[in-house]
């Protein structure tokens, strides 16, 4: 357990500059877009321009600012997401690349091999959630900057939930419903499990490994998507009731998760080769 913690720390430490970089990029790009948009509008209004009603509000709000900087606010988020998605694979391959194959060192550690798997999984999740948390904290900071730029008589307060809903990326990544958050990120975790196991398949079977990995990933995706598309949960004349289809989908997800973890652990402890 302690060794698992140390491994997590090692993974976090290896990635810390990238993580800070993503956070920094997000803050810088968002603040720049915010300042540019808001000062532009304030100048326009001061010069005698008519206020453009925003969902029925006349005064400027931080919600308005977030709504009107959609692309620029979302851009660093997309870059970070792409980076993290890539790192799901690189967090493994990184140990094999370069002159010093760190994989030797990790596999020789006197610790259960599954701790390596779990530590990498934990690290990725930690990165995802800390970036989300960073975005949440960035918003009140950005709102403060907004309040500095816009004089009090021209602005109005915003509901925090409105701010979140103003940007499509936010409402997608930080859904207001806690249940939706769990469903979304739960599915995300399972995707990571499948990806990890695919990587381990490739690393265990080298030549045929990439084929096995692709087959495995495809099978997992198909196991979920095929019932979703064919059972016709939205078709009137479907044979199964929605509750039954939901039950099937849930069971499939559980099986895919268990299989991925089980297979991944086995590959890592018995079949992996440097």
């Amino acid at each position: 357990m302690i060794r698992y913690g140390k491994l997590v720390h090692m993974e976090v430490r290896r990635f810390r500059y990238f993580l800070l970089g993503m956070m920094g990029l997000t803050l810088v790009v968002q603040v720049a877009a915010l300042i540019w948009k808001t000062t532009g509008e304030v100048h326009r209004l001061r010069a005698g321009g008519a206020p453009v009603p925003f969902f029925g509000f006349d005064k400027l709000t931080f919600t308005w600012a977030v709504f009107n900087t959609q692309a620029m606010f979302a851009l660093p988020i997309l870059v970070s997401a792409a980076g993290l998605a890539l790192y799901v694979f690189l967090i493994w391959y990184r140990d094999w690349l370069g002159r010093g194959t760190f994989a030797y060192r990790l596999l020789m550690l006197p610790t259960a091999r599954r701790n390596l798997y779990l530590a990498k999984l934990t690290a990725i999740l930690l990165f995802v959630f800390s970036l989300l948390a960073f975005q949440l904290l960035a918003l009140p900071i950005e709102q403060g900057i907004f309040n500095l730029i816009v004089p009090a008589e021209m602005r109005m307060d915003s509901y925090f939930t409105d701010i979140i809903q103003a940007n499509q990326a936010f409402s997608l990544l930080l859904p207001l419903s806690g249940a939706q958050f769990l469903y979304q990120y739960g599915l995300g975790v399972i995707c990571i499990l499948v990806a990890f196991t695919a990587v381990l398949l490739e690393r265990s079977f080298r030549f045929w490994g990439i084929g096995y990995a692709v087959i495995y990933a495809t099978a997992c995706i198909a196991a979920f998507v095929v019932p979703l598309l064919t059972l016709g949960f939205d078709r009137d004349d479907a044979y199964l009731y929605p509750k039954e289809i939901f039950g099937i989908l849930t069971a499939v997800i559980m099986v895919v998760a268990a299989a991925s973890i089980g297979l991944g652990f086995r590959l890592l402890s018995r079949k992996i080769t440097v």
Binding site: P175, A179, P242
Partner: peptide, 10 residues
């Protein structure tokens, strides 16, 4: 939510 989208269909 995703679950409701499936459960409440039809």
């Amino acid at each position: 939510t995703l679950a409701e989208a499936v459960l409440d269909s039809r």
